[in-house]
């Protein structure tokens, strides 16, 4: 795998705060590299150093073999960025924002127009391309930001929580675009705190906590240490007391999830049988029942809850 993005011992201090603490990783062509962490973990700071918006305190970043401190311009032409909480120009129309982005990256006049129209149509913005961005919804602005980042046909995309706060349809569309981009050979650095999103989308995920990478692997491998923590998710038509679910043989703990209960157990089959028996005793029925494997959430919580966890623990 040819390395497209490489970080070595990347560190950033803000006064006494160590926002990013000596992280190293590499991402290759065609890869969606997930960067997952809780609030304040150092995700945005890392992306800013990778994209040349912020200088590292120490350590280095190479993007397509350009050193981001020595030669940022060489690399910048080859990537598109959607920063966290960034905006298009509100006073300009969607179309004019696209033209501005295209010119900034030296896209020729003809390509600028044809690709802009194609991208704006693809992102459902074509009907409003002539109106000012001021009147766009949050999702429209974010889709426009992504369209602007894609206009110059970059090799790499850096996205900082691109779906945060968006509705299902907009989020899906952004994820579909990201998948297609990677399938065409592009590299994506995808920052998120949405575990399920990282699980579905990314080839590999780095979990960052308090400025350090505490685990880095494929989503399945990250879940592996938790193979024993399977669960049964059940919804009843009537009422069943939680206390009685908790004492069923084989159930380790019960968590209420909306109108459902999640029962953690190493023996999901046995528990499923007992649950339906219990329902019958209460003169009610099971509405739905599912058995689930370990989730990335388990790994994430384990690794990010305690501050002193070491990298090795993820694979134990």
């Amino acid at each position: 795998m040819a390395e497209v993005i490489r970080a070595e011992n990347l560190t950033r201090h803000f006064g006494d705060v160590v926002a990013v603490d000596g992280i190293s990783f590499a991402a290759g062509a065609g890869e969606i590299f997930g960067f997952l962490g809780p609030n304040g973990a150092g995700k945005t700071t890392t992306q800013r150093m990778l994209t040349g918006a912020l200088r590292p305190t120490s350590g280095s970043v190479w993007v397509l073999d350009h050193d981001m401190v020595q030669d940022p311009l060489g690399a910048k032409e080859h990537f598109g960025v959607v920063p966290e909480m960034a905006n298009p120009y509100m006073e300009m129309s969607g179309w004019d924002n696209m033209m501005f982005a295209g010119e900034l990256y030296g896209v020729s006049r003809g390509d600028r127009s044809s690709r802009s129209e194609q991208l704006l149509r693809q992102f459902g913005l074509w009907e409003r391309h002539d109106s000012r961005v001021k009147g766009y919804s949050k999702g429209m602005k974010q889709r426009l930001m992504l369209a602007m980042a894609l206009l110059h046909q970059p090799d790499i995309l850096f996205l900082d929580e691109p779906t945060s706060g968006l509705d299902v349809a907009s989020s899906r569309q952004i994820r579909a675009t990201v998948r297609q981009f990677a399938a065409d050979g592009g590299t994506v650095f995808y920052t998120t705190h949405n575990i399920e999103e990282a699980n579905q989308l990314c080839n590999r995920v780095a979990i960052i906590n308090q400025g350090e990478i505490v685990a880095l692997d494929t989503p399945e491998a990250l879940k592996a240490p938790f193979a024993e923590s399977q669960s049964v998710v059940v919804a009843f038509i009537g009422q069943v007391p939680v206390a009685q679910l908790e004492v069923l043989p084989g159930v380790q703990r019960v968590q209420k999830e909306g109108d459902k209960f999640r029962l953690y157990t190493p023996q999901p089959g046995l528990v499923a049988e007992q649950v339906s028996e219990l329902a019958r005793q209460h003169n009610t029925h099971v509405l739905t029942i599912n058995t689930l494997g370990p989730s990335l959430e388990d790994t994430f919580l384990k690794l990010t809850q305690r501050p002193t966890i070491q990298q090795g623990e993820a694979s134990q």
């Binding site: 800013r48 994209t51 040349g52 918006a53 311009l73 910048k76 032409e77 990537f79 960025v81 920063p83 909480m85 960034a86 905006n87 298009p88 120009y89 509100m90 900034l104 990256y105 030296g106 602007m148 850096f158």
Partner: peptide
């Protein structure tokens, strides 16, 4: 204020 600065900082522009 309008959060348009970071896009300029990551563009190929000194």
């Amino acid at each position: 204020r309008t959060r348009t600065l970071e896009r300029l900082l990551v563009a190929p522009l000194t």
